[in-house]
Design a protein around this nucleic acid. Sequence first.
RNA 1: GCCCCUGUAGCUCAGCGGAUAGAGCAUCGGCUUCCGGAGCCGUGUGCGCAGGUUCGAUUCCUGCCAGGGGCGCCA
Length: 546
Amino acid sequence: MDVRESIKNLIQEALSSLDLEMSGEIHLERPANSEHGDWSTNIALAAAKKAGSNPRDLANEFKRVLEELSLEGISEIEVAGPGFINFYLNKSWLHDVLVQVVNAGSENWARLEEGEGRKVIVEFVSANPTGPLHAGHGRGACYGDSVARLLERSGYSVSREFYVNDRGTQMDLFASSLAACVSGRDIPEDGYHGAYIKEWADEISEDDDPFVWGKQRALDAHKEVLSDLNIEFDSWFSETSMVESGAIEETLTMLGEANASYHKDGAVWLKSTEYGDDKDRVLVKSDGEYTYLLPDVAYHLDKLVRAERLVNVWGADHHGYITRMKAAVESLGHDPARLDVEVTQMVNLQRSGEEVKLSKRTGDIVELSEVVKEVGPDAARFTYLLQSIDTTQTFDLDLVSRRANENPVFYVQYAYARIRSMMKKADQVGFAPIPLSAVDLSQLQHHRELSLIRSLHELPDIVARATRELAPHQITTWLRDFAGDLHGFYHDCRVLGDDVEPSLTQARFVLMQAALIGLEVGMHLLGVSAPEEMWRDEIQDEEGDR
RNA sequence: GCCCCUGUAGCUCAGCGGAUAGAGCAUCGGCUUCCGGAGCCGUGUGCGCAGGUUCGAUUCCUGCCAGGGGCGCCA
């Protein structure tokens, strides 16, 4: 049984013997400050009022009872602060954790069962095939993929989907813009005027249909840059395919039959106000063309059949559509709670602190491919996932492309490469690891060593919370902290060397194996590579004197 | 006017209702007989404002102020 469960049970026993009832879960946490023990509970604070005594006194009561019950492995129980009860454990529990981590390996450590194989579709990016992805799409792309990775690790069966709006007004405008450019005519006023239109028009041949060719050209561009970012979709779901299958008309009929729509002014409207929207929304325009909404509703119905849970990643400019989409879903009898819409706030590009509005190359909006090319895929992903999607992001191209210490991705990757390098060295000097069961892990008593193990033990909880909250930046934060612990350990504790006891070398080697596992798990969840080695840029070699 | 997000250190950001609010960068100062110095250690300043809920609020609720985004028979 997990330590935490054991302690919880112990507290439960104490509650009964004190004749107290607690509603809800017993709150047990790892104190932020290690001077407050290994585990801590606020049970006395929470129960004081009901018990009619002050928290400190009640905590001392608890302490007395807990000590009577006693539990193997607990070395000390103390009452502290306003009435916290802190538990100190024998270090052996941490050494046991190390064995668990190494046995699980990077494949299974912090792998959870919570999803129980349930199917979830993560839909993200879904940009129109009318032009290249821009820097802002990168955030949604990296976020969506990382959320998918989290869900996978938490036991869900995940499908990554890209919804392709390959028909309608915007596509027509895009095709006519391309055609105009090819034949030397002026691009229509409301058409696409980006610099890429000219570049693409140069590639097109006379036999090609601008609509068909243009769509494919845009999709190819999307796939290429996403692939550079280590993102692969399971499905590219075409809007046109739903016209062909009749799914859109079917959806329209279903909405009518559900009395969720009505005709007015020659258009068909969704009664979204019945579900909290400001106004009703048009499904079919008076000219007979669908708005974007109707096909998207049809798409969501399709997804709801295929998966138990849907996660959508939308840009901040789409937040207003959440209500109407949920309205449509609910009016057709589906539980809107099955649909999670996550909104990513905007990205502001900078270069050395100066706002970057336009691309140097095209004089147009900055393309995602330019960002990836300039900073590299690992730095791009790590940076996009550095902070909560709820905040507007400042992305400094200059800073992120720097192969230097102020760039957090290298701080983390370097920690990994450093251990790898040490292990290579170990191999060279003829170090031979003995079987795990023969290693005396109790030698690990240094605070650097213990804090590494504590962090590793925390990782499954971090993964669980990041999954629950769909917040991959929590993984990023953990990695940065863990890398810091690792550099600290590396500085203070040597693994190899004549002055290190062979048995200590063995123990620390196991610790390092476990550390690699932690880093691999974290970096994999972010989609960032774990390099075996890293070397400085030549420029920096010239600058440095070593 | 309505809706969404944000406001925490000089800057970029963490912070699952709890104890002395943390990182990185920047500043200043230290650390090489040794596994990679892209590292380590030290150094001080902060929860936008006002109420409320609570034993306890940076965290939850309300109002206000400030910044960003959205309010189309565009997507």
